[in-house]
Design a protein around this nucleic acid. Structure first.
Lengths: 233, 233
DNA sequence: CTTGGCATTCTTGTATACAAAAACATTGAC
DNA sequence: GTCAATGTTTTTGTATACAAGAATGCCAAG
């Protein structure tokens, strides 16, 4: 006889208390992103367990989560292997990212609030300040804020969530890109165009501008490939 | 001193041998989809463990996977709760699905092979046969094949994967839809238009036709809401 | 009748134990 | 020297054990 009579989940308690396993998943993610582990590396359960000061159980739970997000491949009876996207998959992911952003932009052009527009302008001026100060960290932070606002203003929570997920996944690669000369300034200029399109409420223009902004083509393609080779060394 | 000197994963062995935990995740997914568990239900670890004849450990690993795919919400120290999308989230998901299909169509119009076109026509004639026989199961199977081909012909593996994932997630809701009068026939007709657009290689037409085909609007909206109410009773 | 606090029982989260499978190393044949 | 077979050791997958946190029930006070 089941005890818990509250078989229904009450309204989201929005508990931000994390279990240990969740933290471990995040930390592992970070270790993969920052290059401590690279493609093909095997994640040793016992060593990582020691390192994190926990037993294998929560680690294995973390592996499950990472596996579904694609960062790790779980090969039965063999272990967990880091799985970074190769050039082809990376291009594919950027292509999807560009399309997702375009959709967000198209919807946001119709639904964005005045307040959000103001925040976009604010993020943009912070970006400009970062460009002037050649502070790529600050630039990146504000750039992320800029895009996140657009995701949210699409008015489609699910879409915003998916876009955020992919954005996060591509973060390390995008970040490399910013180190190229003139990249920050160009990106800034594109942001201005995007804001203008959103202000005007022209869906198609907003969509196309965002797609172009995110798409990897022309010189950006070569830059991306260059960073990949560096990462592989 | 690490033992495994093969620290790199060899080329994908494409091992289809599943671990127990993977199977459990799939079975649970099925149980959620077919309505054995409905929104808000708590998944009892010990009971399910008995039911599946395993211990709690593999079950908990399965929970982790289901949590990331959104079917289950893991509340710390409280348990795993089934989380079915409500009307709003469902509409959002269909909107994203429509956009993903549109992108697939746009790319596929440029890249589709003659052989794939032939397969689309084949799937379509099977669909027609199913409509004539009023066999909604067969219709659904061929419909799925139809869409899957388009995903794959986008030439973007990552996109195809994401589209497939969402398609699967929406499966139970789409399936309900087919029971409405005339829905299968209308859907069939739209498929014809889609194939024609792909044949002609007109990207925009293919994209728009697919978007309209998948989008939930007008009468379809009411039908979807009706199925939701039925499911809640 | 409702409300609040305490004890009890159940449930989760984590650690540990153990069996099965995989990788490694050694030996021997060619 | 290369390669195959076999025994050893590591490593994974699962079961079990145990500690800490929730939920329930009970009792008393208002």
């Amino acid at each position: 006889m089941p005890r818990l009579n509250f078989t229904r989940a009450m309204s989201k308690p929005e508990t931000m208390e994390q279990r240990r396993a969740d933290n471990i998943a995040e930390q592992l993610e970070e270790l993969i992103f920052n290059g401590t582990f690279s493609d093909g590396d095997r994640l040793d359960e016992v060593r990582l367990a020691e390192q994190f000061g926990v037993s294998r159980t929560p680690l294995r739970e973390a592996f499950q989560r990472l596996a579904l997000s694609g960062l790790v491949e779980l090969i039965p009876r063999r272990g967990a292997f880091v799985r970074q996207p190769g050039p082809v998959e990376l291009m594919e992911m950027f292509e999807v990212m560009a399309e997702l952003e375009a959709v967000c932009g198209r919807l946001a052009a119709l639904r964005i609030t005045d307040q959000a527009l103001e925040e976009l302008r604010d993020a943009n001026s912070n970006c400009q300040a970062a460009v002037d100060a050649r502070d790529s960290d600050a630039y990146y932070a504000e750039n992320e804020r800029f895009h996140r606002i657009i995701y949210q203003q699409s008015g489609n929570g699910f879409l915003a969530q998916e876009a955020t997920k992919l954005h996060k996944r591509l973060k390390p690669f995008r970040r490399q890109q910013l180190r190229f000369r003139g990249r920050m300034a160009q990106s800034m200029a594109e942001h201005e165009h995007i804001v203008r399109a959103l202000e005007m409420g022209t869906s198609d223009l907003a969509a196309n501008t965002l797609r172009e902004h995110v798409a990897v083509q022309g010189e950006k393609f070569h830059q991306l490939m260059a960073t990949l080779k560096n990462a592989a060394e």
